[in-house]
Design a protein around this nucleic acid. Structure first.
Length: 191
DNA sequence: TGCCTGATGTTCT
DNA sequence: GAACATCAGGCAC
């Protein structure tokens, strides 16, 4: 049974949650096919973070980020890519954890078809992950306790398996060490 | 291996 | 009208 992800994530700030989500599984169901991945890389974003979408306040776009924890915040970027975040923290505070990379556990064949790629390139980047799991704006605001996209929390990883570094792919607040990944995992996008 | 660039939509100023 | 939490392909070294 999936524990209540809403109450667990509601009680965490983005940084705690970014660490906690490492090792968690994302289960996506598409046309009866099951795709399952293990999250291996995350980034924390919150309201007092200049690189966060919520930094400039609540707008129609960032609305779900300010909503209740345990929901999916999907946004479109660079004209061609989606990225997905897990909303965390209490309602009314704009915080989320960007899912940057994951390790396929089940349904690789279907992911290959969606991505037209194979191997590491399947899910080793935020937009790649979304493509492999067919996550787009339709799922923006989706409740991760429900099908067709569920978050399955796992026991927190031992701290010596988690690497904490500065974030990548952004221009603001580059120096904040709010990126986390699982040590020695080949699917981590950049080390 | 590593830099540079093009593709391209949505949001906010 | 510019910025953007990106990716993949091309070319130089």
């Amino acid at each position: 049974m999936n524990p209540n992800i809403h109450s667990i994530l509601d009680a965490m700030d983005a940084i705690e949650a970014a660490k906690y989500l490492l090792g968690a599984e994302l289960i996506r169901e598409i046309d009866g096919k099951l795709l399952r991945v293990r999250i291996v890389e995350t980034e924390a974003y919150h309201q007092s973070d200049a690189a966060s979408h919520s930094y400039h306040g609540r707008t129609p776009r960032t609305d779900v980020m300010f909503g209740s924890a345990g929901h999916l915040y999907v946004y479109f970027t660079y004209g061609m890519h989606y990225c997905c975040n897990v909303v965390v923290g209490r309602e009314g505070y704009g915080a989320a954890v960007l899912l940057r990379a994951a390790e396929p556990l089940e349904g690789q064949t279907h992911m290959q078809q969606l991505r037209d790629k194979d191997g590491i390139a399947l899910t080793n980047g935020p937009a790649k992950l979304c493509q492999a799991l067919q996550i787009d704006k339709v799922l923006n605001g989706h409740d991760l306790a429900k099908n067709p996209c569920k978050l399955l929390l796992r026991d927190p990883l031992p701290l010596d398996q988690i690497v904490q570094t500065t974030r990548i792919g952004i221009s603001k607040a580059r120096d904040e060490p709010w990126r986390f990944y699982i040590r020695d995992n080949p699917y981590v996008s950049h080390t």
